[in-house]
Amino acid sequence: MLAGLSYAAVTDGSASAAAHSVTGQAQISEGRAIFLQECSSCHGLFAQGTPGVAPGLIGVGAAAVDFQVSTGRMPAKEPVAEQPRKPVSLTPQQIHSLAAYISSLGGGPAIPTSADISQAGANPGLGQQLFVADCAQCHNFVGAGGALTFGKYAPPLTKSTPRQIFEAMLTGPEAMPVFNNTTITPQQKRDIIAYVTQTRAEPNPGGFSLGRVGPVSEGLVAFIGLLLFMVLAALWITAKHGKAHD
């Protein structure tokens, strides 16, 4: 999160984007060097992608690069069904250069600005309604994540920064659908982020959280667990001694 905030200042607003254009070419060159070293073995020397291994990156935009690399998903260790979140391997400056290079290949959403993800005035109530309508089916009602098909899964949102959540909605990483800014407006995205982040702050009584969907799941697990225990206990109590029949 600190990393996200620190380079957020660099990318803040269109004014700074114009400022970047002065040094833009150098940045793109640096980004291309990083790309060739870190990414090109899977995504191809020209970011055209490798069928069945890695998608092409032309047109995915800076936001997708920032999401994938700032969550540590990229560079990937190996091709798996779902890339896990892991420690970030590039500096914010390097991520930014890489994003500038991919962005220079054409199109795609930009990295959201600090204003884009500002939580001032966000409405977590509306955010919850939107989250329940379009996000909760995969990410669980409180963002605890859940399973998908063939080893894929919707990751938990417990560690995602507001910027990463915004970028994920904007770009639809991996199997996730895209929620562009005209379908879910930036304000609605901020509301959703507010809901996700405020839900994390809800008190957790500890132990296994079981998706944090409330006492129903906990009660069900306790009921089934105790039932199993009692069945096993009953079996043991009534089981015959081995040697008593001698």
Partner: peptide, 17 residues
């Protein structure tokens, strides 16, 4: 749903949405 606003195809234009 949630926002309860009508949708234009042009607004829902990102493939994968």
């Amino acid at each position: 749903y949630g926002a309860n606003t009508p949708i234009r195809p042009a607004d829902f234009a990102s493939p994968g949405g």
